[in-house]
């Protein structure tokens, strides 16, 4: 494996984590390159948070090896924690502190002092949109602002690896768009791991996605690759005028057609839904079939399998 390659930010080899008899993560292997925004996707309870807790040195793995920027996380725990910024699920914060006190506290622990500390905290107010909230008590902030304080806490030391666990949970659509833009902006320079169970969030921000289910890796690749990898073929929607039985029979004869469903519409129009075995394009065959049989065609549309379908397909059961 290319563990010596210094373009790799996170290298996870054969990671397993058991809690008693429960196998939270089983034999997980993946790599994240520097500068990637990496989506870590899976349904609730799939092992996302457990994996992140291991990567951030909060709990050790049962088995396996993890390297961050070429350093083993067990041997260089302290050094690695300096490189990481982590926003755990639900942004756990000290409720009785003020935003400015809290960020100064975290900044101090990150090694900032005096003017540099003030500068780092001010920069976070700007980046995370907290300028008006600096004197507010954290416990009294709305969910969206708490999430921002959590982000500020994770980014104050300009980390090389930013880990966000469900950063959008509880946010309204406007806040989601804002945070998404923020993540994209950070992702231009830094490596980001973005955990979520909501696919649209991940596909909107991430350049590569890993799907995990029941602690096991299910698929990994770019959003396009994942769509292509899906075993499902394409769908065609047609609107034709002809005799129902004949239409069904002729369409079924075309090679690569898995199933042809015919529904009768008004005025002897038929709605045909054709599914294919593979990814091949049979649009032309369908058209020729209609012409050869002398039917009338009003509509011919190809529908590709969406990432949502892929996700449901891969994580179900």
């Amino acid at each position: 494996m290319s563990t010596t390659n210094n373009s790799i930010m996170l290298d996870v080899q054969n990671l397993s984590k058991h809690f008693g008899d429960v196998k939270a993560v089983t034999d997980l292997t993946f790599q994240i390159k520097k500068g990637e925004v990496f989506g870590f996707l899976g349904p609730n309870g799939a092992g996302k948070t457990t994996t992140m807790r291991i990567v951030t040195c909060f709990i050790p793995a049962t088995n396996g090896e993890i390297k961050i920027d070429g350093l083993d996380i067990l041997e260089h725990s302290l050094e690695i924690r300096k490189k990481i910024g982590y926003l755990p699920e639900n942004a756990p914060l000290y409720n009785d502190m003020q935003v400015n006190e809290y960020l100064a506290f975290v900044g101090g622990l990150r090694g900032f002092k005096g003017a540099a500390l003030t500068k780092a905290v001010d920069a976070m107010y700007q980046v995370c949109g907290l300028t008006k909230m600096t004197k507010r008590q954290i416990g009294k902030l709305s969910k969206g602002y708490r999430q921002r304080v959590g982000l500020a806490q994770a980014m104050i030391h300009n980390p090389e690896l930013l880990i966000l666990d469900e950063p959008m949970s509880g946010l309204d659509p406007n806040q989601i768009i804002e945070i998404r833009e923020l993540v994209k902006k950070i992702g231009e320079e830094k490596t980001v791991i973005y955990c979520s169970h909501i696919l649209s969030e991940v596909s909107a921000t991430c350049s590569r996605i890993l799907i995990i289910n029941n602690g096991k890796l299910v698929a990994t690749g770019t959003p396009d690759e994942l769509t292509a990898k899906s075993s499902a073929g394409n769908f065609y929607q047609l609107k034709v005028k002809g005799e129902a039985d004949a239409v069904k029979a002729r369409f079924s004869e075309i090679s690569d057609v898995k199933e042809a469903q015919i529904n009768e519409l008004s005025d002897s129009w038929l709605a045909a839904k054709i599914s294919t075995e593979s990814k091949s394009d049979i649009g032309e065959d369908l058209f020729r079939c209609v012409v050869n049989n002398g039917w009338t065609l009003a509509e011919l549309r190809r529908e590709e399998t969406s990432l949502e379908d892929v996700f449901t397909q891969l994580t179900r059961g």
């Binding site: 951030t56 909060f58 050094e79 924690r81 756990p92 990150r110």
Partner: peptide
């Protein structure tokens, strides 16, 4: 209870 321990222990501290 508030899970702040998880953050505290992943900051660079002994």
């Amino acid at each position: 209870k508030l899970k702040t321990l998880e953050l505290l222990l992943t900051w660079p501290l002994n």
